[in-house]
Computed example of a mutant assay.
Amino acid sequence: MNENVIFVRELRGNGFSGDEVARMVTRGELVRIRRGAYVRPPAESTDPFGELRDSHRRLIDATLPQLHPRAVLSHGSAAVLHGLPLFPAMLDTVHVTRDRQGGGVRRRTLRVHGSALRDVDRCVVGDLLTTSLARTVTDLARCLPYEQGVAVADAGLALRADPALLLEALDQARSWHGGPQARRVLAVADGRSESVGESFSRLTINQAGLPTPVLQLEVFDDHGVLIGRCDFAWPDRRTLGEFDGRVKYGRLRRPGETAEQAVHREKLREDALRDQGWQLARWTWDDLCRPGVIADRLTRAFARAGTPWGG
């Protein structure tokens, strides 16, 4: 259990009245997790999902005393522990699975799922019993919207989820709710995607009917020196595609380097890629809401490279 969770009985035992606790919450000195459970305000996180992850982990810690000893953290709660991408709707409650048929329970801060759990479907992360990475990916592939499920599955493969165990989990879930969708999700999952934005971009490119890109292509100069690794590439069309997430330049920064220096270095990299005869198309999160914009940028890049796309 996380020792940072403070229960109201402990506060009262230390002489704090209910009014004093309420004032501490108002002043921001305590954050209420659920009735009777509080934490100190969290430190700022560099994890792009850090706020969601920290908030839900506190909810898990505050809920643990209520859980049945054979309950296994699962779904979004397991995703928090495994370091998978997170989306707000999957974290509205603590999710656990019990090894039984049916018997699901939904409360305000707790969702109990009933389904078969083999030994291979369980593991321990830290000191918490949770569903395995393969089972967690499969459960979320069944339950999340398709695009989010793909992003989670991509990340699961990047975290070295065992493909054989994923296939076993898919087979086990074939008649469960969302089983067919899970198969569609895992059929297109690719562990080379390095962010949710890249996963969403890959689906957008596919839905636009554009040629399938190569992922994470390394581009070298005439002397064999690596210029850079690019998110998407169409080598036969001499075109590169890059998703620019809001945290991308933070990831690119080297020790001691300012954000401005990282941006300048990225510009030099882009110039070097163009010097090698590559066309470059970029897009952002906002562009993902307008898939026609991405398709237009790529088709124009293909045309500049002398390989127009007429599909």
Results as ranks from 00 to 15, higher is better:
189 A>L: 05
159 L>I: 09
184 R>E: 12
228 G>P: 09
165 L>C: 07
193 S>V: 01
195 S>T: 11
217 L>G: 01
143 C>P: 01
174 R>D: 14
209 G>E: 03
152 V>F: 13
168 E>D: 08
158 A>K: 09
219 V>E: 15
231 D>E: 14
192 R>W: 07
217 L>Y: 08
207 Q>T: 09
211 P>K: 03
211 P>H: 01
152 V>H: 15
228 G>A: 02
169 A>E: 10
147 E>V: 15
165 L>H: 06
216 Q>K: 04
185 V>Q: 02
229 R>E: 14
176 W>L: 10
197 G>D: 04
163 P>V: 04
183 R>D: 08
153 A>D: 08
153 A>Q: 02
230 C>W: 09
224 G>S: 12
190 D>C: 06
197 G>W: 03
204 T>S: 15
223 H>P: 00
218 E>Q: 10
157 L>G: 04
191 G>F: 03
157 L>S: 06
192 R>T: 09
152 V>S: 14
161 A>E: 05
224 G>M: 14
159 L>C: 10
187 A>N: 01
210 L>W: 04
227 I>R: 15
186 L>N: 06
143 C>N: 13
165 L>E: 13
165 L>V: 00
212 T>M: 03
151 A>V: 08
225 V>S: 11
175 S>N: 11
192 R>A: 05
214 V>L: 07
185 V>L: 02
169 A>D: 08
213 P>M: 07
168 E>K: 09
178 G>R: 01
206 N>K: 10
199 S>A: 12
180 P>H: 03
144 L>F: 02
181 Q>E: 05
176 W>M: 09
155 A>T: 07
194 E>F: 02
157 L>H: 03
193 S>A: 15
203 L>T: 07
150 V>E: 02
151 A>T: 07
161 A>R: 04
217 L>Q: 11
181 Q>R: 10
201 S>G: 10
179 G>Y: 11
195 S>Y: 08
148 Q>N: 12
174 R>A: 14
171 D>W: 06
169 A>N: 06
212 T>R: 07
196 V>K: 03
189 A>K: 06
232 F>S: 08
224 G>F: 13
188 V>E: 01
153 A>E: 11
146 Y>D: 02
147 E>Q: 09
181 Q>I: 09
183 R>N: 10
182 A>R: 00
197 G>C: 08
206 N>T: 12
198 E>H: 13
198 E>A: 12
153 A>F: 03
186 L>A: 06
223 H>R: 15
146 Y>F: 13
155 A>S: 13
187 A>E: 03
201 S>E: 01
205 I>Q: 14
223 H>L: 15
232 F>R: 10
150 V>N: 06
226 L>V: 10
147 E>N: 09
223 H>G: 14
214 V>G: 00
202 R>K: 10
146 Y>T: 01
145 P>G: 07
180 P>C: 05
168 E>M: 08
153 A>L: 06
158 A>C: 05
174 R>L: 13
146 Y>G: 01
230 C>G: 08
